[in-house]
């Protein structure tokens, strides 16, 4: 499943994922945002992997925030924006 979200005042946030047994799987976050260090991308994917599809946006935000180190900086993207795009993929996503 695929979702896209243009964060207001930010950049395009894209997610590709699968659902297996009620859980999020094979997560790939992408977009034209900025992340430092670049390894944070894989950390975010890993944090979302295995989360229940019933998770609320607040659940996912908390999950990402606890997984990301204090040294991670984001520009044009945020945990909130990522949670929104996950919701879009799950609830209105296309099977692209």
């Amino acid at each position: 499943m695929h979702g896209e979200y243009k964060m207001p005042g930010g950049k395009l946030v894209v997610i590709d994922l699968e659902v297996r047994e009620g859980r999020i799987a094979d997560v790939q976050l992408s977009g034209d945002f900025f992340l430092e260090p670049d390894s944070a991308l894989q950390a975010i994917n890993a944090a979302l992997e295995g989360q229940a599809t019933q998770s609320t946006e607040a659940d996912l935000v908390e999950r990402m925030q606890s997984a990301l180190g204090a040294d991670v900086t984001m520009y044009g993207v945020s945990p909130q924006a990522i949670a929104i795009v996950v919701g879009r993929a799950l609830h209105e996503g296309t099977n692209a």
Binding site: V14, D16, Q28, L29, S30, G31, D32, F33, F34, L35, D38, L41
Partner: peptide, 9 residues
């Protein structure tokens, strides 16, 4: 393409 962009997308 940017560091975090999906090649196929």
């Amino acid at each position: 393409i940017g560091r975090f962009q999906s090649l196929r997308n």
